[in-house]
Simulated assay, not measured.
Amino acid sequence: MLIHCEQVMRNVCARLGGELREFNGEDDHVHLLVHYPPKLPISTLVNRLKGVSAHYLRKEFHQHAHRHLWGDHFWSPSYFAASCGGAPLKIIKEYIEQQKRPD
């Protein structure tokens, strides 16, 4: 399911003129490093990532996805976004790569 989520999110980023540079996930959240156009509001990017991925993941993994819902929603309504303009991308990628994936 996480692999399919990454593919969907890569496609969403590309359609919006961005690039998903790093992806990893845990049982209850994902970590993304996204390069996106400066005129694209982060809220639009996140809403599209969540909306499109929820649609396809529910469709493809209905039984499994049902166990991980936030009420009736696939994703929590909240998100955390931070700019990493000054940090070396290598450090951010390593952080995301080191996150624990579910067994």
Results as ranks from 00 to 15, higher is better:
1 M>H: 11
1 M>V: 08
2 L>R: 07
2 L>D: 06
3 I>M: 02
4 H>A: 13
4 H>I: 01
5 C>H: 06
5 C>P: 00
6 E>I: 00
6 E>F: 00
6 E>A: 13
7 Q>I: 01
7 Q>F: 03
10 R>E: 13
11 N>V: 00
12 V>C: 04
14 A>P: 00
14 A>L: 12
15 R>T: 15
18 G>F: 10
18 G>I: 07
19 E>R: 14
19 E>H: 10
21 R>I: 11
21 R>E: 12
22 E>V: 00
23 F>D: 00
23 F>L: 02
24 N>Q: 05
24 N>V: 02
24 N>Y: 02
26 E>Y: 07
27 D>P: 05
27 D>C: 12
28 D>Q: 12
30 V>D: 00
30 V>S: 06
30 V>T: 12
31 H>M: 06
32 L>D: 04
33 L>T: 02
33 L>G: 01
34 V>N: 06
35 H>A: 14
36 Y>S: 12
37 P>D: 02
38 P>A: 01
38 P>E: 02
39 K>F: 04
39 K>Y: 07
39 K>E: 14
41 P>R: 08
41 P>E: 01
42 I>K: 03
43 S>L: 02
43 S>C: 10
44 T>H: 10
45 L>M: 07
46 V>Q: 03
46 V>K: 04
48 R>M: 13
49 L>M: 13
49 L>F: 06
49 L>H: 08
49 L>Y: 09
50 K>R: 09
51 G>Q: 02
52 V>Y: 06
52 V>K: 08
52 V>I: 15
55 H>E: 09
55 H>C: 10
55 H>K: 14
55 H>L: 13
56 Y>N: 08
57 L>M: 15
57 L>Q: 09
58 R>N: 15
59 K>V: 01
59 K>H: 13
59 K>E: 14
60 E>K: 15
63 Q>E: 14
64 H>F: 11
65 A>W: 01
68 H>Q: 13
68 H>E: 09
70 W>Y: 12
71 G>Y: 06
72 D>F: 04
72 D>H: 10
73 H>Y: 14
74 F>H: 03
74 F>R: 03
74 F>W: 13
74 F>N: 03
75 W>P: 09
76 S>K: 06
76 S>G: 09
76 S>C: 14
77 P>F: 04
79 Y>D: 07
80 F>T: 10
80 F>V: 12
84 C>I: 13
85 G>V: 06
86 G>F: 05
88 P>T: 05
88 P>Q: 11
89 L>A: 10
90 K>P: 00
90 K>L: 08
91 I>W: 03
91 I>G: 00
93 K>Y: 02
94 E>R: 15
96 I>L: 10
97 E>Y: 15
98 Q>P: 00
99 Q>G: 04
99 Q>F: 11
100 K>L: 11
102 P>H: 07
103 D>A: 14
